[in-house]
Design a binder for these strands. Sequence first.
DNA 1: TAACCCATGTAAAAGGTTACATGATTTC
DNA 2: GAAATCATGTAACCTTTTACATGGGTTA
Lengths: 196, 196
Amino acid sequence: MSLDHILLGLLKEPASGYDLKSVFDHRIRYYWAADQSQIYVTLKRLERQGFLESTREPSDKGPPRRVYHRTEAGTEVLHEWLRGPPKVGDERFAYAAQLALMGELDDLSRTRDYLLELENLLAQRLEMLDGIQRDTFGNADIDPLTLPPARFHAWLTLHLGRRMVRTRMHWCRDCAELVREREKVESEQLSAASGS
Amino acid sequence: MSLDHILLGLLKEPASGYDLKSVFDHRIRYYWAADQSQIYVTLKRLERQGFLESTREPSDKGPPRRVYHRTEAGTEVLHEWLRGPPKVGDERFAYAAQLALMGELDDLSRTRDYLLELENLLAQRLEMLDGIQRDTFGNADIDPLTLPPARFHAWLTLHLGRRMVRTRMHWCRDCAELVREREKVESEQLSAASGS
DNA sequence: TAACCCATGTAAAAGGTTACATGATTTC
DNA sequence: GAAATCATGTAACCTTTTACATGGGTTA
C-alpha cells in the first residue's frame, strides 16, 4: 500500500494528478514508479476514504485541473506510516533471477555479454540520478547539512540510489572479469584435451 | 511476468509446487519472493499454456504430489528470456520512500532511529544471505571458478546480494552520522538563540 | 498542420496477497 | 496428544499494467 502513502506525502502542498505524475517521473522513479492511470484511480479512492479532498480549478493551458489536498485524517495515516518500521525485504530483482538461471545456457560468453549490457543500463541509470541531483540541488556539490529538512531527506535518499547503482556497476565489472577467467580455464582444458 | 520464467528455470529437474515453494524460501527469496498460492496457480496456468506437464505421484509422507516437468515449448520461452536484455529499472523500495518523505515530521531523532533500525534489519538480511551461502557452498570460502555452471551463476547472484546489503548498511551508518551532525548544529542554534 | 504538452479519465486483464480449507504422517 | 511437516488447492481482494478515449492550447 505504499503508493497511497507516497501520494499523501507528496500532497503536503496541493497538487493535481498530472502534477504528481510528473513528480514521480522526475524525482521519484528511481525508487518507485507509478503509472498515470494508477495515480488517478488511487487519488479518487483516497478521496472516497476521506484522506484527500479535491477542488476543480481552471487551468491556464488545457482543461480544468482537479487539485487534491490532504485532510487531517490523511496526515494522520501518513505520519503513522512515517513513524512505523522500515519496510524492507520485498524487493524483486528480475535481472538477478535471469543471471541466476543463466547457467542452464552453458554459454559463458552470453553471461559476460549480459553483465556488460547490465553495466551499460546501470550507467544510464546513474546519469538519470545525476540529472535528478542537478535538478534538485544544482550543479555544485552542496553540503547536505545546509539544506531544509525536506530536501535533506531527499538528498539522503538520492545518495542511497547513487551508491547502490555504483555498487551494482562494480559488481558487473568484477563478475565479468571472473567469467573471463573461467572462459580462459575452459579453453585451456579444451586444448589440453585435444592435444592429449 | 518473471515468476513464470523463474518457475520454468527451476524446473530444469521435475518438482512439485511444494518443492518449488521451499526453493523460493531457501535460495531465492533475497531477490524474488513468491507466495505458495501464487506458485500453485501459476504452475497450473503454465501447464494450460503448454509450457509444463504434470504427473501425479504418491508420496512417502503425506498426500500425493503433482510433479511438473518442462516441455520443449517451456524450455524455448525460458531460453528466449535468458537470452533477452537484462530486466532492470522497475525496482520499488518502500523504505526509500519513507525516508524521502520523513522530512515532514521535522524530527531528526526519528530519522536517526529509522536509519539505525533499518541497519539492524539489513544485518538480519545479511545473516540470511550467509545462511544461504553456507547451505549452498559450505562453510569454507570456495573458489567460484571451480563450481559447475549452475552453481557458478548462483554464486554470482548471491555475491551481488551480499554487496548490495553491505552498501546499504554503510549508507545507513554514514547517514545516521550526518543526521547526528545536523542535530548538533540545530541544538547549537537553539542555545545561541536563547542566549542572545 | 503536425507534434507536443496540458489534463482528465475508464476498462480489462494480469499479477500478487491474505485468508481459508483439508487431511495424512512423523516427531516430541 | 500436540505440533510440525508434507501436500494440495480455492476465493476474495488488492495492486499494477496496458490500452483506449477525449480534447484544447502552444510551438515549430
